[in-house]
Design a protein around this nucleic acid. Structure first.
Lengths: 238, 238
DNA sequence: CGTAGTATTGAAACGGATCAATATCTGTGG
DNA sequence: CCACAGATATTGATCCGTTTCAATACTACG
């Protein structure tokens, strides 16, 4: 399951890192920096539905998704689940609080991730400001994405939420298929838990989108966006 | 309005910075680091309702709230407002995207903030990994707070959202008054825009809380929590 | 091929949004 | 210091969409 990471890889490559706090142009890591990171990391493969770590377990490493997709979620006391994030290529996960992970992370399909043990990573960041700046930029980007999500979670309409989800998927998975169709790695239930609405509402909302000829399905998880204009309108912040 | 920051200050003091990515104990800045930051910063005072910066204007500086409170919000196309965050002592604000601020920030009452011009701050962070690590920790904490908020925004019940807001205020403003009462700096409308529910729903929810003797009001903005146990139950993630 | 998990569809009820009227607060000028 | 006006907040009635409950259909994996 573990093996040493090969040298050419998207780990911390520029395309995985968005442009920075502000006005700063995007930047690449130096070869040396990338090599340092790679020397710390192992590439780990997870089987579908495999748990990568559990909430409340001690933090041992930080991960960067290399391939496939995963979900980070919490179990609420009511038994409900909230999906905090879907994880795609380049996404960082494994942050914790008081030395414990806060979410449980599970692979959706087959998934490979770089695993960066926490202690040596921290040591490296503490001595290489330039490298750390890349991480900072990444986390700042995460903050913005979460602000956006918070705004969109404030809205009531199920169809708006689903539209927003489809946009996100489209952005994330563009080019997965030649014909413009995208295949979602997660179940309807996962989508519902992510959007904070019920499974039934997701079902009804997607049905309406299909009836309006805004999207089309080929199988349960393969979606084609037919009318991007109207999808954008629905997803727009009310 | 502008004046040079005095030397003793909570700017980036440890108590304003939460414990770090993981397992790392909280740490202080060295005197030298603090001095460096102070040499970059100016302490600025804003009058109630004064706009600190507008969304879409070019990013010039990053701010740390020193005293008072503010709100960061966006105007949606519909004319609605979404309050993205309330800003209290120690909170960092002024992150942007593509060189532009994404939110508008406005002082609620009288407010003072450290203003750190972006360019020199970036240069300093890029050369001092230890200092930057404190910033990273801060931003990571922000990510967690936003994840929490996202979860709570997913819930439907107005009373639950208001309870959660009261908890937040309590945590933020404890010790504002000797008698345990807390005085909120923001209006009902701001609260509604923050929670993503209507003003009317906030009004009705607070009324129910008062009727259940969970909280009490002395004036419109001074709140006493009478029954913390039941408040916690209501605020608990459903 | 069957079974357990996953998804669709329908009917009813609940709760927040909306619209509308009234009340209260805040800050300003007389 | 008071009175007034505009902004802010409360309260009520109705509407609409999502949740909930329940039954049925689908699908994936052994």
């Amino acid at each position: 399951m573990h093996r040493k990471a090969p040298d050419r890889s998207p780990l911390l490559r520029a395309d995985a890192w968005h442009d920075v706090t502000d006005g700063v142009t995007r930047r690449l890591l130096t070869d040396k920096q990338r090599a340092q990171l790679l020397s710390l990391s192992t590439l780990v493969t997870y089987k579908p539905k495999q748990i990568i770590y559990h909430a409340h377990s001690p933090v041992s490493a930080i991960f960067v998704c290399q391939n496939g997709a995963g979900k980070a979620f919490r179990e609420l006391r009511s038994g409900r689940r909230r999906v905090v994030a879907f994880l795609f290529q380049g996404d960082l996960f494994g942050l914790g609080e008081h030395g414990r992970y806060v979410n449980t992370v599970q692979a959706l399909g087959e998934m490979t991730s770089y695993r960066l043990p926490f202690e040596p990573l921290e040591a490296l960041l503490r001595q290489d400001a330039e490298l750390q700046f890349n991480v900072l930029a990444k986390v700042v980007h995460e903050v913005r994405a979460l602000q956006m999500r918070t705004i969109l979670m404030g809205r009531r309409s199920a169809i708006g939420r689903v539209a927003m989800f489809l946009q996100m998927m489209d952005k994330q998975l563009q080019g997965t298929r030649a014909d413009g169709a995208l295949s979602a790695p997660m179940s309807r239930t996962d989508v519902a838990d992510y959007l904070g609405i019920t499974l039934e509402s997701v079902s009804r909302a997607t049905k309406r989108l299909v009836q309006s000829k805004i999207i089309a399905f080929a199988g349960k998880r393969t979606i084609t966006i037919l009318d991007r204009r109207r999808l954008d309108e629905l997803a727009a912040d009310e």
